[in-house]
């Protein structure tokens, strides 16, 4: 393990985005940062900046308006990164499944590494999910990135796909 990978797992920084859930999970994510659960003991801080983040916490069933923003944020987070879908509605749409303005879950839009179910997900579950995500993060490198489906749709030619991959590795 390189020294970068080691330090990355010891102090992962969090980016949190709500894609249209009910706020319950967002408040629980905030509660995770407070003294009772104190996620800082794993070296985690909630940062609003996507360019500094390693762990991307997504809540909500992804409304149509949030879709583009979610993709944009996902591309801005540097590689390697892990995506954690928090809450039942982020996993598969939950109670909002098949409503007209909803995309039925985060994994329809961006690739997800860890699913945390529950409505709303309890803080213990969120901590557990993030710690599991760290294991996945330690195995990821800049080299073994796979392009998500929606990018393949956008760039049909292989040459363009290669360029996007190189671009992602540079970040």
């Amino acid at each position: 393990m390189s020294i970068f990978a080691l330090s990355r797992v010891k102090s992962p920084w969090i980016l949190h985005y709500d894609t249209g859930g009910c706020n319950g999970c967002d408040i629980e994510i905030l509660a995770v940062l407070t003294p009772r659960y104190d996620v800082e003991r794993f070296g985690m801080i909630n940062r609003g900046n996507p360019k500094q983040a390693d762990v991307f916490l997504v809540t909500g069933p992804v409304t149509k308006r949030c879709r583009e923003r979610l993709i944009n944020l996902y591309l801005q987070v540097p590689e390697p990164k892990v995506v954690v879908a928090v809450g039942s509605c982020a996993c598969d749409g939950g109670v909002f499944r098949n409503m007209y303005n909803v995309e039925n879950g985060v994994d329809k839009v961006i690739p997800v590494d860890v699913y945390v179910p529950g409505c709303a997900a309890r803080p213990h579950q969120i901590i557990d999910g993030v710690v599991k995500a760290l294991e996945i993060l330690s195995k990821k490198t800049k080299e073994n990135i796979e392009l998500p489906e929606y990018i393949k749709e956008r760039f049909p030619s292989l040459n363009d796909r290669r360029k996007v991959l190189e671009e992602m590795r540079k970040r």
Partner: peptide
Amino acid sequence: FLTPESPRAP
């Protein structure tokens, strides 16, 4: 309230 992709007048 809607987005260009969402159905019109739901």
